[in-house]
């Protein structure tokens, strides 16, 4: 175990499944209170990296640590600490945001319905429309409010800003910044937008063919 305390650590993570796309020897550390970006071409393994954290049955060698604990040894309680925003996330698309939130309240400890509804209203997303009727940008905003409502320590954002207008993108990063400062969370974000990588991220990682070829502090 490393001496410095990190929120998220990947230590030599290599996929062992025969079927699926594999990561190869991924090692990086993300301290609390920082925002990190992962870049790379399509198919480089960025979303797969998130899948290794989020999928309860992913098979790999190495360690994925959240607050020093192996993430999949107690997936249920550690999942409570992760806010996941991605197209791969699963919701009842024919139900409204409010109905989906009601279901989430059964599973997440400390689910904050007031915060969820307040964030949704601030972002201007309908609580009563079925999720299938939301635009991609609205859907991502909904997912962000959903992730915030259970007060995670780590946010995993998979190309969240891709469908958002530039004005809202600025507000979105302000929102993330306030989360970093007030709740001492960290954000790991996949993005194809170069400007975001250059100006908004504290750490930047680049992936190629399942490998993390660089992980550097963005000075």
């Amino acid at each position: 175990m490393s001496e410095e305390k990190y929120l998220l650590e990947f230590v030599g993570v290599t996929g062992t499944s025969r079927k699926n796309y594999k990561l190869q020897d991924i090692t990086f550390s993300l301290p609390a209170g920082f925002i990190a970006g992962i870049a790379g071409e399509n198919g480089a393994g960025k979303t797969t990296l998130f899948d290794y954290i989020m999928h309860p049955k992913k098979q790999y060698a190495g360690s994925i640590l959240l607050n020093g604990k192996e993430i999949h040894d107690d997936y249920v309680s550690l999942r409570q600490q992760i806010g996941f925003v991605s197209e791969k996330n699963r919701f009842f698309m024919e139900k409204s945001a409010r109905e989906n939130a009601k279901l989430a309240a059964c599973l997440f400890d400390g689910w904050d319905s007031d915060l969820f509804e307040k964030t949704m209203k601030e972002m201007g997303v309908s609580l009563s429309r079925p999720l299938s009727k939301l635009s991609r940008g609205e859907y991502m905003k909904y997912q962000t409010a959903y992730a915030m409502a259970h007060h995670p320590v780590l946010y995993l954002l998979d190309e969240v800003t891709a469908g958002m207008d530039p004005v809202f993108r600025i507000d979105y990063f302000k929102l993330l910044q306030s989360l970093l400062e007030e709740e001492n969370t960290s954000v790991l974000m996949i993005s194809h937008i170069q400007e975001e990588m250059d100006r908004k991220m504290d750490f930047v990682g680049v992936m190629e063919e399942g490998r993390l070829v660089s992980w550097e502090e963005n000075l």
């Binding site: 989020m54 999928h55 309860p56 249920v76 999942r79 698309m93 989430a104 599973l107 997440f108």
Partner: peptide, 23 residues
């Protein structure tokens, strides 16, 4: 079986995949 957007059918187990649930 649940309806999951565009009349696609999913299982509840699928819907719970990324949720903090003990399988």
């Amino acid at each position: 079986s649940v309806t999951y957007g565009n009349n696609k059918s999913e299982t509840v187990a699928d819907m719970l995949l990324y949720m903090p649930v003990d399988r």
